[in-house]
């Protein structure tokens, strides 16, 4: 499909970028920023509409790469680090292998070669009524996210029900990752867990003109983490359901965390403290039931609603047993 006309920019520094954004804003034009473009460009092609300006972040210096900071024992990963590099990075594999393993579950090798960590965390929400062409939007009518008056999935909904599909988000939330956000006149940090909003349109707390520059991952005593992705094919597909489970077995504050994506507009986070249960078995049973109960999948995926709920329960149970060593 043909993209409609737009001005294309490729700034080489953050200063240049923020100057550009300032200029565009002053002219009341619209703009979109992108990393690899594997999500944004595909969506623009589907919609047949483009913003006035497209800004590629690929040439901005200092936004890609992995750095270990020994002072506070943290890993700093640039938002423009490509997923393919993340899969191969020695420090990531050594210090946080679950990140590399999860990145490998995203899309396909060709796409990972372009797609970035930042792009994955900011990936657009998905829905059968949103990810459609102009003709089909004409045919079936538009939805909240495509400018219509109501959600096609839940008539009464006042927010968009499109699915959140970033595979790296659950793992990074479990790791306690912090986002470094930067705009022309401010730098701030935000816990990844607090970043997302349960709305398929207003997806997160990034403000217009602000960029995600890097992600900070504390390495002191990280929990044990597993991530499993339910999808039709073992390549290419977005998650129909993504399940991240973390287990921190420290005696006093032992806790199990579950983070599920692929069904709701934002990650569904739940925490269970061992002290609140009779034993680990009871905690796992409760956590897996909750995993299923907290999800609100809708008819917008290859897999039926009931199946995804069932899988949430079964996967959490299986993974929690594996993590706690209580089969």
């Amino acid at each position: 499909m043909l993209l409609s006309s737009f001005d294309y920019h490729r700034p080489t520094s953050l200063d240049e970028l923020f100057d550009l954004i300032g200029l565009i804003k002053s002219q009341n034009e619209s703009f979109s920023l992108y990393g690899g473009g594997t999500d944004l460009i595909a969506n623009l092609k589907l919609s047949g509409e483009s913003p006035d300006n497209l800004i590629s972040c690929s040439r901005i210096e200092g936004l890609a790469g992995v750095r270990h900071d020994p002072n506070n024992n943290s890993l700093f990963i640039g938002a423009m680090t490509r997923l393919a590099d993340l899969c191969e990075d020695r420090q990531v594999i050594k210090k946080c292998p679950v990140i590399a393993l999860t990145a490998k579950k995203i899309a396909s090798p060709q796409i990972r070669f372009l797609a970035t960590l930042g792009g994955n965390l900011l990936v657009n929400t998905r829905c059968v009524y949103f990810n459609q062409t102009e003709l089909k939007r004409d045919s079936l009518g538009s939805c909240l996210k495509t400018g219509g008056g109501s959600c096609r999935l839940v008539k009464s909904a006042d927010t968009c029900k499109a699915r959140f599909v970033s595979d790296l988000a659950p793992v990074l939330i479990l790791l306690g990752a912090k986002l470094h956000l930067k705009s022309a006149d401010e730098e701030r940090t935000l816990m990844l867990e607090e970043f997302y909003r349960p709305d398929g349109i207003q997806k997160n707390h990034l403000t217009l003109g602000e960029i995600l520059s890097f992600i900070e991952i504390p390495l002191d005593q990280p929990p044990k983490i597993l991530y499993e992705k339910l999808r039709v094919r073992d390549a290419v597909d977005f998650a129909s359901l993504g399940v991240g489970v973390g287990w921190n077995g420290k005696k006093m504050s032992a806790a199990l965390e579950t983070i599920l994506i692929g069904t709701d507009p934002a990650p569904v986070v739940a925490r269970f403290y061992l002290k609140d249960f009779k034993d680990i078995k009871e905690m796992i049973e409760h956590a897996s039931n909750q995993a299923s109960a907290l999800l609100s999948p809708l008819k917008q995926d290859f897999f039926p609603v009931g199946y995804r709920k069932k899988m949430a329960r079964q996967l959490v149970e299986k993974m929690a047993r594996e993590l706690t060593g209580k089969p």
Partner: peptide, 21 residues
């Protein structure tokens, strides 16, 4: 189909097996 409209008219949503399968 939904009301005569193909819902999955793309290679992302129409699932042809990948080499993994």
């Amino acid at each position: 189909y939904e009301h005569g409209v193909q819902q999955n008219a793309s290679f992302l949503e129409y699932k042809i097996p990948s080499p993994f399968e």
